[in-house]
Amino acid sequence: MVERDKVGRFISHAVLLIGVLIVAFPVYLTIIAASHTAQDIVQAPMPLLPGGHFWDNIAGAWGGSGAQAGSKAPVARMMFVSLVTALVIAIAKIAISLLSAFAIVYFRFPFRMFFFWAIFVTLMLPVEVRISPTYKVVSDLGMLNSFAGLTIPLIASATATFLFRQFFLTVPDELVEAARIDGAGPMRFFKDVLVPLSSTSIAALFVIQFIYGWNQYLWPLLVTTDENMYPVVLGIQRMISGGDAQNEWNLIMATALMAMLPPAMVVIGMQKWFVKGLVDSEK
């Protein structure tokens, strides 16, 4: 039995190690490519050991230098646009979803469940489905090439509203009665009781929505034509202009490496809260 356990542990660890290597190898290639010159990368075979130009390529991409075709928007600006977009989408989605779920659960008004199901049905209408009318509205309101145009059409979330509603339904009625006896109004009960109880769910949703906002590509592709409003994901695509000889792959890979860092930092920094928000049943 002990030997069988040892064999099972060895196999499981071997499978995990192989999985890690498969996932990590593209990241390793990105780091390697970001440390060489453009001429070194297009050679066959491509170098698999680090070069000596890593920080030069990072600095060149950060400042937007480059001599070939393609976008030369500074990565610093693109990272700023992506960061603002991701933060606004994540925070606004959570705030709107909290308030809408609070209203649906704790207020009695006509057609309450109708409005809830109307919100829920929008799960079948993502931005990709309603992209043409949404673009027309944004264009008519003059919000092209702006942070408002990048974020406002994406800040409503039926999923988050549904999750918060389900959580609010598990809050004991005794808490509501105790808050009412203490003289707490609806918004004070919301601020002092419901929001603290929802902290782990908020953290988990923040991680998910931040990554969702950071990785947006299709919508920014439509509403931005000015390089100063490119998010970093769109900027990477714009840097790829044609054949291998025309692309500065060292700068592209340096940009891709920098684009990986903020989502990774958010996941690592909020990992404890993220996992707790997904699996904790005693919130």
Rank of each mutant, 00 (worst) to 15 (best):
A67Q: 10
L48R: 00
M270E: 09
P26L: 12
S146Q: 11
H36A: 04
Q216R: 03
G235F: 01
P172A: 13
P263F: 01
A92W: 01
W55C: 13
P186R: 13
V42S: 09
H36D: 08
V207L: 02
D40K: 01
A69M: 03
N228T: 15
S198H: 07
P45V: 02
V129P: 08
Q43T: 12
I268D: 00
S35R: 00
T30D: 00
G63M: 11
L123Y: 10
M270V: 12
N57R: 10
T37P: 04
T151W: 01
V137G: 08
Y106A: 03
L17E: 10
L21T: 13
L251D: 00
V23K: 01
I155T: 12
L123V: 14
F168A: 05
I236H: 00
Y230H: 11
P220N: 03
P186M: 13
F168T: 03
P153E: 00
P50D: 13
S132T: 07
L123A: 13
A73D: 10
P45F: 00
L221R: 06
A95G: 01
P262D: 10
A103R: 05
P220R: 02
I252M: 11
S146K: 06
M270K: 11
R165V: 08
A256N: 01
E174S: 15
L16R: 09
V171L: 02
G277N: 09
V20I: 15
T225W: 03
M143R: 05
A34K: 00
W273E: 15
P47W: 03
F164E: 01
V171M: 08
V223I: 14
D192W: 03
N228K: 15
E128G: 07
P262G: 12
V275D: 06
V121G: 07
K72N: 11
N215F: 03
V137E: 07
S139G: 10
W117I: 14
I252W: 04
V279N: 13
V195D: 05
I41Q: 02
S100T: 06
S97Y: 06
I252C: 10
M113F: 06
P45R: 02
S12K: 11
T161Q: 03
I152G: 05
V15W: 08
V176L: 12
W55G: 04
F116I: 14
L123E: 12
W55R: 13
I104V: 12
E177K: 10
V42R: 07
P153D: 00
D244T: 14
M187E: 04
A69D: 02
P231M: 10
W62R: 08
I31V: 15
G183K: 15
P262I: 09
T224V: 09
V15H: 08
I240M: 09
R77I: 14
R165K: 15
A156P: 05
L169R: 11
E282C: 13
M253R: 00
A264V: 11
K136M: 12
G235L: 06
D192N: 10
I31M: 07
M270S: 09
E128L: 09
D140W: 11
W273C: 14
V23T: 11
I58L: 13
P47F: 06
P110Q: 09
T151Y: 03
E177P: 07
I94P: 00
